[in-house]
Amino acid sequence: MKFGIPVYPGSNCDKDIGWVIEKVLGEEVKYLWHKEKSISDIDCIIVPGGFSYGDYLRAGAMAKLSPISEAIYEFAEKGGLVMGICNGFQILLEMGLLPGAMMPNKNLSFVCKFVHLKVENNEIPFTSLYSKEEVINIPIAHAEGNYTCTPETLKNIEKNGQVVVRYCSPEGIVSDEFNPNGSLNNIAGICNKRGNVFGLMPHPERASEAVLGSTDGFRMFKSIVETALKA
């Protein structure tokens, strides 16, 4: 299986994801420069974290205008698998592939730490190897991870099962106490209605090897491969 990883000026997690895909998962990687206008021979795109274009205007706002982003949009609209991590999630929101927007963290500070997540939806290609309501341990590292949307949108994504992971306690309790950034309903990651586009603020690539302190994130990447094998 071949994974495409777009690289924008300011991306800094592209090689981290590439390492996990190639060295840990054992699959092929192709890096896609932001000026490329088309995507071919790719099975899944993972938009990496970092600070694309220096986060000018707001995180992801300029990256959505890149030629590669237009190609990613078309790829997703045709049913291609697209995952956005941290800044990648912000980019997917700005592109309109996912509903809602990001605001600065409620404490107005950069937050970098391990958090617990409850898996709410394990029926999409990115989470199929998890159990529903399983609690996993994955790190975050962001200043603008405060997910927001209109009341109507929030109602719809909850109703449709588009909330994939939520911030929670080690025991799976979802409350403000365990919300690191102020996100509505403790939302850490969402998908589109079709389930082929998924964005989350935590970094699964930083929890894919035991030496990093957790391997809970690895199954997100493994789930993608397992889904493709069953197709």
Rank of each mutant, 00 (worst) to 15 (best):
E133Y: 09
S131V: 13
E133V: 02
E134W: 03
P125E: 14
I124T: 06
T127V: 05
V135C: 03
I124K: 07
T148C: 10
Y147G: 03
E123Q: 07
A143W: 11
I124M: 15
T148G: 03
N137C: 03
G145K: 08
E134I: 07
P139V: 03
S131N: 15
N146W: 13
P139D: 04
E134T: 02
V135H: 01
F126L: 13
V119N: 09
L129E: 05
A143S: 10
P139Q: 03
V119R: 11
E120Q: 11
T127A: 01
I138T: 02
N137K: 04
H142A: 01
E144R: 13
A143H: 05
T127S: 06
N146L: 15
E133S: 04
E123Y: 09
P139H: 04
T148R: 10
V119K: 10
K132I: 13
S128V: 12
N121A: 06
Y147L: 14
I140S: 00
P125T: 06
Y147C: 10
I124A: 13
I140K: 01
N137E: 07
E134D: 02
G145P: 04
E144I: 14
E120K: 13
Y130L: 13
N137H: 09
K132H: 09
I138K: 04
F126C: 10
P125R: 11
H142I: 07
N122A: 08
P139K: 04
V119A: 06
L129R: 06
G145R: 06
K132P: 03
N122Y: 11
I136D: 04
P125N: 10
L129D: 01
E133M: 07
E133F: 11
N121C: 06
V135K: 04
I140V: 07
N146Y: 09
P125K: 14
V135E: 02
I140P: 00
F126K: 14
E120D: 07
V135T: 00
I136H: 02
I138P: 00
N137W: 09
N122V: 10
K132T: 12
T148Q: 07
E133H: 09
N122E: 14
K132Y: 08
G145Y: 12
E133T: 05
E123K: 12
E120C: 06
N121F: 11
H142C: 06
E120F: 07
E144P: 13
V135F: 07
I138V: 14
H142R: 10
N122L: 12
L129G: 00
A141E: 08
Y147S: 06
P125F: 12
